[in-house]
Amino acid sequence: MHVKHLLLIAILVLTAACGSKEIKVDESLSETELYQQAQIDLKNKNYSHASSKLKALESRYPFGQYAEQAQLELIYAYYKNQEPEAARSAADRFIRLHPQHPNVDYAYYLKGLSSFDRDRGILARFLPLDMTKRDPGAARDSFNEFAQLTSRYPNSPYAPDAKARMIYLRNLLASYEIHVAHYYLRRQAYVAAANRGRYVVENFQGTPSVGDGLAIMVEAYQQLGLDDLAGTSLQTLKLNYPDHPSLEDGQFVPRASTHKRTWLARATLRLIENDTPLPPGETRAAQDMRRQYEDAVEAIPPELQPGYKGKKGKTAINDDEPRRSWLNRLTFGLFD
């Protein structure tokens, strides 16, 4: 399966590179002809051609009979063509220009959908990406945009679907906070872990992650020696989540542990199966550099390791030599 995933990535990259030609629209087409051809393209799911014709229609006939409809359908064409940023921009423009339009709720809905799918491209549909471990920025945007739709247009035909997606997004955001809290637990940052757990308990009531938040609070408070807070959190956990995995025969069992990286996570620098969200102040580039160095150290044969003694008791590398920094090793001595 993993080989198929890598082949799929290569095919999609080549397809995207080959499909980036600019589409020219015949300048002799009338307003009606442009709109009709755009409708045919939309029906045939040829969204790139449809968006080009809808943009041409709007620019050539800004006050025509199809101008407003073209702006609305352009949002849909961008969304279906997997251009979320263009779709959101077009939706914002339509909402700004036509706030009283009878179908403005549709623009709000498409804007929310575009953010909802912003991190769910073609790769995410086929590769084992855990959405709860990725940057939640798009999820927050989508939640807020669906919230605008449901609050301003509660009777909209799109409101029920928006509410259902909001439930999913709220669960996703809560799960992300739990992943971050576990990250802090593994690194013994217990105050930060307790704060994250408490944040989930206070702000995501009703989500499946509340029990995990309480368990994190118990473990973090125990490690900090705050027995009263740990006891209160444990009693709350037992009362509300008696079947939580951290409870065995009524006793709390800490769950924080180090996690081995899979070969797929290493090969993709944790793009796939990523278990460590970025902590505050950290950068992805710095993490990647450290991982490359760690992987290089792990690949060094034992006989080349400092302090290794062969069959005759001889040391392969002189321990008296000054130790080189990881940056020096990684850059082959270019940087001391």
Rank of each mutant, 00 (worst) to 15 (best):
D135H: 03
P136A: 04
P136H: 07
G137M: 08
A138L: 04
R140V: 09
D141G: 06
D141L: 12
D141P: 04
S142H: 09
S142C: 05
F143C: 00
F143R: 04
F143D: 01
N144L: 11
N144I: 06
F146Q: 02
F146W: 04
A147V: 07
T150A: 11
T150H: 04
S151M: 12
S151W: 02
R152H: 07
Y153E: 08
Y153K: 10
P154R: 13
P154N: 11
P154G: 13
N155D: 15
N155V: 14
N155Q: 15
S156V: 07
S156C: 13
P157L: 05
Y158P: 07
Y158E: 12
A159H: 10
A159K: 09
A159V: 09
A159P: 10
P160W: 08
P160E: 04
P160I: 07
P160G: 11
D161L: 11
D161M: 12
D161P: 01
D161W: 08
A162T: 04
A162S: 05
A162N: 00
K163G: 01
K163V: 10
K163C: 05
A164E: 12
R165F: 03
R165E: 05
R165Y: 05
R165G: 06
M166A: 08
I167C: 04
Y168P: 01
Y168D: 08
L169K: 03
R170S: 12
N171I: 00
N171D: 12
N171Q: 04
N171A: 02
L172R: 15
L172D: 05
L173S: 01
A174L: 03
A174P: 00
A174M: 02
S175Q: 11
S175D: 11
E177P: 01
I178W: 06
H179M: 01
H179Q: 10
V180Q: 13
V180G: 07
V180L: 15
A181M: 05
H182C: 00
H182F: 10
H182Q: 13
H182T: 00
H182M: 07
H182E: 12
Y183R: 13
Y183C: 07
Y184R: 07
L185N: 13
L185C: 11
R186G: 10
R186P: 03
R186S: 08
R187N: 14
Q188P: 10
Q188N: 15
A189V: 04
A189R: 15
A189T: 03
A192E: 10
A192C: 07
A193S: 15
